[in-house]
Structure formats: C-alpha cells, structure tokens
C-alpha cells in the first residue's frame, strides 16, 4: 500500500496533466487548471522549507563552532533582519524609501553585481594560465573563440570587416546545429523519463531506487 498509492497518484496526475496540455475542453481544462494552482502553492511552500533547512543547517554549525561559523552568523542575522524589515513594511515593501528597498539596493544589488563582475578578472587570468593549445581540437576552439570575441564587439569590424560576419556564421551554422542536436537529445531524454515515471518504471521519487 505504501508503495502502490504514491505510484497510482503519480500515474493518474501524469496522464491527466499530459492530456490537459493538448486538450482545451472545459471538462479537462478545469481540473488541469486546479492542478496548476496546486503546483504554484506547493512551489511557494518550498521557499518555507528552504528557509527552515537553511536555518537548521547554519544554526547547528554555529552551535558546533564549525569551520567559518562567524560567516554563518552573518548569514542568519542578514536573513532574519531582511525578513523582519520586509514583514514590517507590509505589502508596500518595494516602495521607494522603505527599509526593504534600502537593503535590496545597498546590499543585495551591490553584492550580486560584484560577484558577476569578478568573472572578468577570473576569465582574464584563466585565459593566460589555463587555455593551452595542445591539440587540433584546442586550436579549432581557440580560433572560434578569437573570431567570436572580436567579431561580437564593435572593434571587430575595425580590425577586419569580415570578423562580424564570420562570428555570425559560427553562431548561426555550426553552433546552432550542435545546439539543436543537444536540445533534441535532451527533449527525447525528458520524454523518456516522463513516460518512465508515468508508467511507474522509474520510482526514484519514492526513494525506492530504480525499477
């Protein structure tokens, strides 16, 4: 029973949602919409679970004085403070001048942008230290990288007018062909996995292992 009930629920929900995707008849559509709304509510609850998990893990590590525990205090305090300020601001928490907007602009926005900007430094350093042309494949990759890096920026047309056209050709023909193949392969894989779950062959979601 413990095994069969989840299996039947998954099978029924899977088949119904699959039909609902293609059949717009109100009889199917009403139930389909209801399931979509449940999904939205369930996904919203995962944020609560995520928060609880974050707190549990970090508070535990702080208590044990695990490695880098002072940083975990910063994380917990920042998390709780942001939530408290957000709740205190109410439904207008995103309005100009609120404490939440101040936290968002001063900390979250600035730190996220900084993390992304650091990529420029790491890429430059990695280009010097790690990109070694030792094989024919690496040489082809390097040539493609040179054409794309220079052809995709305005200075490329100043270096040589053919560079932007070559960059476009690389993106639209070989790259696109490879990407299309990967997409189709991945889509077939997703379909196969979906059918395996619907038919009860794949049961890893029930922590039972394979078929």
């Amino acid at each position: 029973m413990k095994r069969e009930v989840p299996l039947i629920i998954s099978m029924a929900a899977g088949i119904f949602v699959l039909i609902g995707f293609f059949v717009p008849h109100p009889l199917v559509r009403t139930g389909y919409d209801k399931i979509q709304q449940w999904v939205i509510v369930v996904v919203a609850f995962t944020y609560v679970l995520g928060m609880a998990n974050l707190m549990k893990l970090n508070l535990d590590q702080i208590q044990r004085r695990a490695k880098d525990w002072p940083y975990k205090i910063a994380l917990v305090v920042a998390c709780l403070a942001t939530m408290a300020v957000g709740f205190q601001n109410g439904s207008h928490y995103l309005d100009d001048g609120t404490g939440f907007t101040w936290i968002y602009n001063t900390f979250y926005s600035a730190m996220s942008s900084t993390m992304f900007s650091l990529l420029a430094f790491f890429i430059a350093s990695a280009a010097f230290r790690a990109f070694r042309v030792r094989t024919v494949e690496a040489l082809l990759l390097a040539i493609a990288a040179f054409i794309l890096m220079l052809g995709r920026v305005p200075i490329g047309s100043l270096i040589h007018p053919v560079l932007p056209q070559a960059a476009d050709w690389l993106m639209e023909v070989p790259q696109n062909a490879a990407k299309r193949g990967i997409l189709m392969g991945a889509a077939l894989g997703v379909m196969a996995t979906g059918f395996r779950i619907i038919l009860g062959i794949e049961r890893t979601y029930g922590s039972e292992g394979g078929s």
């Binding site: 420029a120 890429i123 430059a124 350093s125 280009a127 010097f128 230290r129 790690a130 990109f131 070694r132 042309v133 390097a142 990288a145 040179f146 890096m149 220079l150 995709r152 920026v153 305005p154 200075i155 490329g156």
Partner: peptide
C-alpha cells in the same frame, strides 16, 4: 570597455601559450 576586455583576453590566450 567590452571591446578592450575582449582584445585583452585574446592577447592573454596568445601570451599564455
């Protein structure tokens, strides 16, 4: 800025090799 950064990275690949 991006143009100069791209040229610099291409140069770094060359110099690294």
């Amino acid at each position: 800025a991006q143009s100069l950064a791209h040229i610099f990275i291409a140069l770094m690949i060359l110099l690294g090799n």
